[in-house]
Structure formats: structure tokens, C-alpha cells
């Protein structure tokens, strides 16, 4: 039955998309009735930076350390997703499945130890 497992997720998705639109709509209506102010001003629409005029944009280069952690996350998160199916049925499998999972986690742990040793986990 399509509606019955993820169909409800779809319903909730629809409501979740519509729900934030509601206050936006109310806000717009208030504007139409001149209750909510809408007075554009060049200074008001300036980028905020503690009172001084912002020099240049912020879309420049960014420190690479964030990238290192993002890489680590992608690797570990994908591996963890592979562990989920094993976790659900592991107790009914033979002990060899545990050994295989242990090897799998061991490789992960080795990768973590390697990253640690190389200083990838240090925030510099």
C-alpha cells in the first residue's frame, strides 16, 4: 500500500512545506493592510557588521580545516550506514558475521587512528 508507509511521510512533507508559508502569508497580509512596516532604506539593507560599513563580501576563501572534518564525516557516516543492516540482524547470524563486522569497524578505527596520528583531528 503506497499511502500507508511512506505516503504519510509525503503528507507530512506537504504540511511541513505549507506550515512555514502560513506565517509568511499572515505577514504579507499585515503588510497589505499597512499594519506591518515596509520602509526600505539603503542603510537598513546594508550588511550588518557592528556598525561599520562592511568591506568586501564574505564569499571568499575559507579555512581548509572545515574541509578535513567534512571529509572525515563523509567517510565515517557512509560506513555507519553500512553497519545499520548488520546491527538489526547480527544476533541471528553466525559468529563469522561478527568477525566480519569487527574487521569492518577495525578498518574504520584504524582510519581514525591514522587521521589522529597525522594531526587531521587537531583544530589549527
Amino acid at each position: 500500500m503506497i499511502p500507508d508507509e511512506f505516503g504519510r511521510v509525503v503528507i507530512l512533507l506537504g504540511v511541513a512545506l505549507a506550515f512555514p508559508a502560513l506565517p509568511l502569508l499572515v505577514s504579507y497580509l499585515l503588510y497589505l493592510f499597512h499594519i506591518r512596516p515596509e520602509r526600505p532604506d539603503p542603510i537598513k539593507h546594508e550588511t550588518y557588521e557592528c556598525g561599520v560599513i562592511a568591506e568586501g563580501g564574505s564569499w571568499g576563501q575559507f579555512n581548509a580545516r572545515y574541509y578535513l572534518f567534512a571529509l572525515g564525516f563523509v567517510i565515517f557516516d557512509v560506513e555507519v550506514v553500512f553497519l545499520y543492516p548488520w546491527a538489526v540482524i547480527h544476533a541471528d547470524l553466525a559468529a563469522t558475521a561478527l568477525v566480519k563486522a569487527a574487521i569492518f569497524i577495525g578498518i574504520l578505527a584504524f582510519g581514525l587512528a591514522y587521521a589522529w596520528k597525522r594531526g587531521a583531528l587537531e583544530w589549527r
Binding site: 505577514s27 506591518r36 512596516p37 537598513k44 546594508e46
Partner: peptide, 11 residues
Amino acid sequence: VGKEDLRPRNA
């Protein structure tokens, strides 16, 4: 709800 909905010019 009654506040102005601002968007910076550069955003």
C-alpha cells in the same frame, strides 16, 4: 509577525 521582513542588499 508584525515586524519588517528585511533582506540585506548583498544577500
